[in-house]
């Protein structure tokens, strides 16, 4: 009810970013250190995040995702453009962001030497909760994420994934309508990942919470995101549902060929494929129209080519294929 009303009235826009530009200035070189030129990390970014959705920013490292969220969270001032969060101009009033959203950054330095329980409780207190409320939320969040057993361990004694989960727990305190998560599941095992997405879903279903997620993990993007903005070199190169994005390259399929030793280039059909292949060691990756892919599979699964073939897969396009088709650099993307 509430969600529908808000969407009708405000277009349901939780984050509205317009023409956002942020350039990091050049640094002077010291002796032994190279001079780095100015970097335009965000180059005219415009996007809307709607209430109740899990919106993703997908791109390789260095694409400008973190720079964008740092401006949404009030940590960084844009050079130009506007950022509105739940109707507040956070470019002009960055201090308001802390009262609107919960932010999970990439670092845990501030919490490392605290126990998990104290880190969560203290964060709750610093979000304005009373002592009793903070303790109650601490207990509830630790139970929800199955962190009870680790409650009395200092964060820095935990594994990377456990530490990440503990930091995620701190973000959940104080009931914020918007959660901004910068690569939340890095290093987590599948159980912890499921706990994260279950907690996110619960907040979305019960309170209409919105999630802005930074990721370079293609599989995660396909499974959890409602919509995704694909970012490359500081620009949004596409923004749609994962399915909508994949439809753009739906006439193509991906064919992966893994050769036993070296590719049998003396087979003319194989030699013809080489020019279209992205070669990584023994692996060839080809993006082909469906009929050509079928023909290629027929070619390599017979005769001399088949003898040299170790493995092959034929798959419908993933977001990674979309990313490549849109002209992005795929090197920094992760598929796990």
């Amino acid at each position: 009810m509430s969600t529908g009303t808000k969407q009708a009235e405000h277009g349901g826009t939780v984050c509205a970013v317009r023409d956002l530009i942020k350039t990091y200035p050049a640094t002077r070189g010291r002796r032994g250190a190279a001079r780095t030129p100015a970097v335009r990390a965000n180059d005219g970014i415009t996007l809307d995040v709607h209430r109740g959705e899990i919106f993703g920013l997908l791109g390789p490292n260095g694409a400008g995702k973190s720079t964008l969220v740092r401006q949404l969270t009030g940590l960084l001032r844009p050079d130009s453009g506007s950022v509105h969060v739940l109707g507040h101009d956070v470019a002009r009033h960055p201090e308001r962001a802390a009262r609107l959203l919960g932010y999970l950054g990439q670092e845990s330095t501030a919490l490392d030497e605290m126990t998990v329980a104290l880190a969560v409780e203290t964060t709750g207190r610093l979000r304005g909760l009373g002592p009793g409320e903070a303790r109650a939320e601490r207990d509830a969040v630790l139970a929800e994420l199955a962190l009870d057993a680790l409650a009395d361990r200092p964060l820095k004694k935990l594994s990377g994934g456990q530490r990440r989960l503990a930091c995620f727990a701190t973000v959940l305190t104080g009931d914020r309508p918007l959660l901004v998560l910068d690569e939340p599941t890095t290093g987590m095992d599948p159980v912890a990942r499921r706990a994260v997405w279950a907690a996110v879903d619960r907040r979305r279903a019960e309170r209409g919470a919105t999630v802005l997620l930074v990721t370079h993990n293609v599989l995660e993007a396909e499974t959890v995101l409602d919509r995704v903005a694909v970012i490359d070199r500081g620009k949004v190169i596409a923004c749609d549902t994962p399915g909508g994005l994949k439809e753009r390259v739906s006439d193509e399929v991906r064919l992966d060929l893994v050769w036993r030793d070296r590719p049998p280039l003396d087979v003319p059909e194989v030699a013809a494929l080489e020019s279209a292949a992205h070669v990584a060691g023994r692996r060839w990756t080809l993006r082909l129209p469906a009929d050509r892919a079928r023909a290629a599979v027929a070619d390599v699964t017979s005769g001399a080519a088949f003898a040299a073939l170790d493995d092959f897969t034929l798959a419908t396009p993933s977001l990674e294929d979309v990313y490549l088709a849109l002209g992005g650099r795929a090197e920094g993307l992760v598929k796990a």
């Binding site: 009810m1 509430s2 009303t5 808000k6 009235e9 405000h10 739940l86 109707g87 507040h88 308001r96 009262r99 609107l100 030497e113 605290m114 126990t115 104290l118 880190a119 409780e121 203290t122 207190r125 610093l126 979000r127 304005g128 009373g130 002592p131 903070a134 104080g174 009931d175 914020r176 309508p177």
Partner: peptide, 28 residues
């Protein structure tokens, strides 16, 4: 659930309770 827009801001942490929380965390 009447609409308020811009959305209401969550309360700020007040100085003394926040100071106490930071102090306690630092001691630990």
């Amino acid at each position: 659930d009447r609409e308020v827009w811009p959305a209401p801001l969550a309360p700020r942490a007040r100085l003394l309770p926040a100071l106490g929380a930071v102090y306690r965390a630092q001691l630990s």
